[in-house]
Design a binder for these strands. Structure first.
Lengths: 188, 188
DNA sequence: AACTGTTTGTTGAAAATCCAACACGGTGTC
DNA sequence: GACACCGTGTTGGATTTTCAACAAACAGTT
């Protein structure tokens, strides 16, 4: 599954990714050139093309990596003495805080529009698996509702990021959870 | 004179140097192994040997680089409205401050004993060239005196570093200069 | 429309690095 | 002393990156 990477490959991809992230903090992906990324990363441009098709490809690989990593984190340790539904939300927020800069640039308006979509899907999948299992309703309806609810939650998170994460993850998790709960109460 | 370095060489040498400096901040050069440096720098050990003979060699290259760089700096721009003899000392201190961490580790006791010697020579050469030219005395005596004076000055700088550079470079330059002047007044 | 400058994607050969393996010397342990 | 362990320096072949060059697409200027 995961190819063996020798040191050089690892390094090359690392600095190219860092380079793109840096540039994404300044301008949207469409204004960024491959040449620019390579100069910043101090990597020969021809090397770039042995790893990625273009800078959009590189961006999607970055996003892929983050979502994979986040997914792993979400499925890891749980705080034992906390209500299950709050835990989930809290862990998501913690992960966001850990990768503050990354999320700030990738969720920024127009910087990388696809990232938000990925986050939606990941978060939704996770929630669908872990939310209290008492949904005896039609799958379709539940799915649509979760889209509705999670879209709202994600945008609250974006707001939170925009306000430089003033509230603690725990605090925010409680609040967002109330929103989500209220949304799901539609089913009852 | 200076060979052309392709990106890879530059990078390799850069991280190896950084690695050694990091380790030197923790223990003396004699306790450091080549293997250790390579692991920290994430560079294959065989590559190390294509650049340096051993870690002492690497250290000397580092020192060489610093002294060259410092020499260049010392011969650069002068503050126009300041007395010549103070300027010199001040520039030296400024350079030290710019490379604070480097000097702190390299001048640390037992970390790298040769560095001090290099600094002595460099500083002395610079002073001999720039000090007021009214020395109609025998070269030999002036040389010995300068050794005496500069050795004192360097150890004052070491003290200054050890005290985390509380005083400003300008302040220190004035003070050290007074010491030096007093030393040279021996000749009069 | 011709011109200028810039980015793109691709190529081939040179250069550098990686990796695994080796024999060797030192150091400490039983 | 025999033993295991670890760092050393070196080698050869595989892999990767670099560099310089190229034709092509594109944008902006006059």
């Amino acid at each position: 599954m995961s190819e063996k990477l020798d040191r050089r490959k690892k390094y090359t991809r690392k600095v190219l990714k860092e380079g793109l992230i840096t540039l994404l903090a300044q301008k949207p992906i469409s204004d960024i050139t491959v040449k620019e990324i390579c100069e910043l990363a101090d990597i020969n441009r021809s090397t770039f093309y042995t790893h990625y098709n273009d800078h959009y490809d590189l961006l999607s690989k970055i996003e892929e990596e983050i979502t994979e990593d986040m997914n792993e984190y979400l499925n890891s340790y749980n705080y034992p003495a906390e209500e299950e539904s709050i835990q989930m939300t809290r862990k998501i927020l913690e992960y966001v805080i850990e990768n503050k800069f990354m999320f700030q640039t990738l969720l920024k308006k127009d910087a990388a529009p696809t990232f938000e979509k990925r986050m939606m899907e990941l978060t939704r999948g996770f929630m669908m698996n872990n939310w209290r299992g008492d949904n005896h309703l039609g799958k379709a309806e539940v799915n649509y509702l979760s889209t509705f609810v999670i879209s709202g939650a994600i945008h609250v998170i974006k707001d939170w990021i925009a306000h430089d994460m003033d509230q603690s993850p725990k605090e925010m998790a409680l609040m967002i959870n109330n929103f989500i709960n209220y949304g799901f109460s539609y089913l009852e």
